[in-house]
Nucleic acid binder design. Structure first.
Lengths: 209, 209
DNA sequence: ATGATTGGATAGTTGTACTCTCCAATATTA
DNA sequence: TAATATTGGAGAGTACAACTATCCAATCAT
């Protein structure tokens, strides 16, 4: 399969595929001559993944590249790789910074939840940032709500982890892509559940089942 | 309070505050003369909200404007207003489109969950889009996982709705801002829960409680 | 043999989110 | 009261991201 066929298959302009090649999101095809290279379904699958990450997931090209690189070469420390991969996902919280207690809100929250955490883990900064934003906007999160959300998150995590493949490479792919791809699903479901509950409570005619 | 004081208070350049005024994210101050206007804490709170929406929540300026307008002037149909507000939040799924069954995956999923839904509701398109992305990327969501996520979402929605203010204006603000501001919290908690579960299972030394 | 296609590089386009510069009118300060 | 600083408002300018278009000489298909 040549580049034009690959692009057509993926429904993208050739110029865009070339752009992804340049940016390192797509591995180069096997060169069959100075001006020809061949691509296979592996490349097609990758292209679809790139579109999923830059589209619905909302990653920038650079973030997608970072995530894909980690999936491609996980390194031998599974734990560190997963941490780094999640750090590459939006939203980006400010980095660890300076102070003795850089994440006061997140620390308090996690202690309250009785959760183990690594202060270097990017999600801690993300949590701090999100909690601060809610506060700044005048809608701070109550302890009770935090506990509720935390419990739900823990349930889902337990479920997901049970299904994680044993083999390290597959485990990284599963976790990283699972985080990136399933989060939008969870958010959409939450929004729809809000609507469902609202309709049942407020009583409204329009919706159909 | 004049514009420079407002900007200083919010930690922003004056030019940026002017930009938000131009873009209609911030309501103009009360003009005290041809070249002076005065702002109060109301404006400051709004400015913080704008930063929360364009920062951690990840809205573009236009999306933030759309959300804020709905919060400001909810219209008399609470249900429609909430639907429109959620539609203004990312990620944007393609619009209803054409075909007889524009959202096959989402429809199947919601039927499976036994949920009431309005096909015109933006979150349906978002769900369709997210499910399609997961499929395209080679990690389709199983029925079982969907059920699990759906149940978690329903629990959270029930909790949130119970706490929704009665007064319509306040209800819109609560729902819209709650969606925008609490979603990042939920995602961060999910990521941290993954790590927590992983550590407990895989056994790892570094993290602290 | 001849027109189309390719990889590779460079430049151009579009859109977003600011940021800067001006200006005359006002406010503050000396 | 005179000199200096600040303001609101408008328009232009900047920086970056994500493509998109153009070239080119080397192949490839017919």
């Amino acid at each position: 399969m040549r580049i034009s066929a690959l692009a057509a298959e993926a429904g993208l302009p050739v110029a865009t595929v070339k752009y992804y090649l340049r940016e390192g999101l797509l591995q180069p095809g096997i060169a069959t001559s100075a001006t020809q290279a061949s691509y296979d379904e592996h490349h097609l699958r990758r292209l679809r993944l790139v579109r999923a990450l830059t589209g619905p997931v909302g990653l920038s090209v650079q973030q997608a590249r970072a995530v894909l690189q980690l999936v491609d070469e996980p390194g031998d420390d599974l734990y560190a790789t997963l941490g780094r991969a999640v750090g590459a996902l939006p939203p980006e919280g400010a980095e660890p910074a300076e102070a003795s207690d850089p994440f006061p809100r997140a620390r308090a929250a996690l202690e309250e939840l009785g959760q183990v955490y690594d202060p270097g883990f990017a999600a801690v900064a993300q949590l701090e940032c999100a909690l601060a934003a809610a506060e700044d906007a005048g809608m701070p999160i109550t302890r009770e709500r935090l506990a509720r959300y935390g419990r739900a998150a823990a349930d889902l995590a337990a479920y997901d982890l049970e299904r994680m493949p044993r083999e390290p490479h597959a485990a990284v792919e599963y976790t990283v892509l699972g985080t990136a791809l399933y989060e939008p699903v969870l958010l959409a479901l939450r929004r729809l559940a809000h609507q469902d509950v609202a309709v049942r409570r407020l009583g409204r005619a329009r919706p159909v089942e």
